[in-house]
Write a protein that binds this DNA or RNA. Sequence first.
DNA 1: ATGGCCTCGGTTCGAGGA
Length: 255
Amino acid sequence: MQLATWNVNSLKVRLPQVLQWLESSQVDVLCLQETKLTDDKFPVAEIEAAGYQVAYTGQKTYNGVAILSKLPLADVVKNNPRFEDAQQRIISATIGGMRIVCAYIPNGQEVGSDKYQYKLRWLDALHDWLADEVKGYPNLALLGDYNIAPEDGDVYDPVEWQGMVLCSDAERAAFQRLCALPMKDAFRLFPQAEKLYSWWDYRQMNFRRNRGLRIDHILLTPPLAARCTACEIDKLPRKWEQPSDHTPVIATLSA
DNA sequence: ATGGCCTCGGTTCGAGGA
């Protein structure tokens, strides 16, 4: 069983890459962020033709999330029921005995800005909601674009990024509070090579220079972490024509 | 020193992303 997350930066533009990746990757569950599509424009037929059921919630221009699954999706919930939010950033479903939560955590733009305050409030509300969700769903996975690099080792140049948005103490503390629910960062369950990232700015040839950040994550509650046998970042789609600036992260779970 | 790319909406530029 493989679970994956991928910020596609417009599903309208990226649908061919998503379908190509699904053909080769064999993932069972794929969480997408930044679909940037209203629900009436969602490419349901193409995704079903690829062998996946899908749940989605979107809006015009910004945000938008979806869960693709080979197995049936049940009990779909859109957004955080405890946080009034016009922005479509969360969708959850039960799949094969697991509660899958797909999240597009706000970017925050700049430390101290209104968007940064919104990000911290949003993360607080996510934490408080999930604290109850994990009681009802011991097998819960939170996959998505967290817009947080948890540690300096997740940043190509920690000095340049020190205190900046995605790396600030308050954001990292929010990440640690999610880990204390408790949940485990699947990527850090295993020895990993250095300088592995999930996002690279389109500018400055940052991908070729591997100037990236690891901001896309899979957090697993202890029963799922115990079943996790691998967690990998697949850099290949970032090398394709017209790529997303993010690349998929995959966790493998034993039966 | 500055901005450097991509997407969208909707027009040829500004906002947002990270």
